[in-house]
Design a binder for these strands. Structure first.
Lengths: 195, 195
DNA sequence: CGATTCTTTGAAAACAGTCAATCTGTGTGG
DNA sequence: CCACACAGATTGACTGTTTTCAAAGAATCG
């Protein structure tokens, strides 16, 4: 069931032979998390990549004052990993947990990279995802550095409305780098302006 | 002279045969820019990648109020391109110009990618640079979203002091997403605390 | 219901931005 | 060698936005 989802996803995005597809699917393991359960805890070195088939994961950092800062969400058909920890080989500064009951497929990153190297279409797909991700991230930097709270909210509405529809507002605020109170005020003001 | 710099750089970072090295060097063209001259202007589609051999380039966006927001600097031995415009194929929202008299080698991105695909060590190098860049960028997002102006400055001191040593403070401020006045006040206060 | 969890609202405080003036250093032309 | 212009940096007073803290109001779930 989970593997069928990944298979459908890969089928839609890359041209793979039956053999290649099986190789890839074979490398993944199923995993389920209930709401609030962890995939990764701070202090561990992360060597896994997850493909979400159901639910939603979040990647976040906790600062000195115990405030959470969400870096990324991952819904169905999205990939999630702590790339920073993987790249640096250092223990992770991040947590990954499920914000809904979720199902995912897990693969060791080294294994996955090897697959990407030997199976061209998979490598190309990953390359292209990285590029798209880069654009998202760059937009995010721009927003964080130069937008007001209100502009950040508008940008989210424009480019990632699915987040707003799916995630508690307190987490949206954390993702935007503002407080929940500020987000709440912006929204109520935006509503008033509509009328 | 410029090509020797690139050659030395590649030699240090990747194992390339003489033939491969020549292929790569051959794809690049020399270019010089005086201070304030443009490599890329907003509204164009960018298809080039630059390897800086001397001086310093900056990539920046200009907002509705004509305020500049610097996304990235590139000193000697750094790469610079407007990846967003390349990935999306849309006209660029960014400018690239020289903030010192600079020299660089230019290559068409498609050509360069093709080289990376056929010359494994080059592809691997680029992959690894992307990964490192990813970590930098992620740190930048964290800083932008959750740090005070002072913390951002401290982070820059720790992780990218070369920027501080090289670039006018007004540009440092723009890179940090704060005003030059605020940066100035932070610095004078930091000095006072030292005594 | 009762108990979390999530969201909203209000008032005060902190932080950074804006505007305007001044200061500093560097280089150029007389 | 001086004077002036210019770019960059600093300072002060004021304004505005966002955070903080505290409390209360919805919504959801067993």
């Amino acid at each position: 069931m989970m593997k069928e989802k990944l298979s459908a996803y890969l089928h839609a995005k890359a041209r793979l032979s039956e053999d290649e597809m099986n190789q890839i699917l074979h490398a993944f393991q199923e995993k389920k998390l209930r709401k609030h359960q962890y995939l990764l805890q701070e202090g561990n070195v992360s060597k896994q990549i997850a493909f979400v088939t159901k639910g939603c994961l979040r990647l976040y950092r906790v600062d000195e004052k115990d405030v959470e800062h969400i870096v990324q969400f991952a819904f169905e058909d999205w990939w999630m990993s702590d790339r920073e920890s993987y790249v640096t080989g250092m223990p992770s500064n991040y947590h990954i947990d499920a914000i809904e009951d979720s199902e995912m497929l897990i693969c060791d990153i080294d294994t996955f990279n090897r697959l990407g190297k030997f199976i061209q279409p998979l490598g190309d797909l990953m390359q292209s995802l990285q590029s798209k991700n880069f654009v998202t991230v760059q937009r995010r930097i721009n927003a964080a550095l130069s937008y007001t709270a209100e502009q950040k909210y508008q940008e989210l509405l424009t480019y990632q409305p699915e987040i707003l529809q799916r995630v508690p507002l307190a987490m949206v605020a954390s993702y935007l780098g503002i407080t929940r109170e500020t987000l709440s005020r912006i929204r109520s003001q935006a509503n008033r302006n509509l009328k």
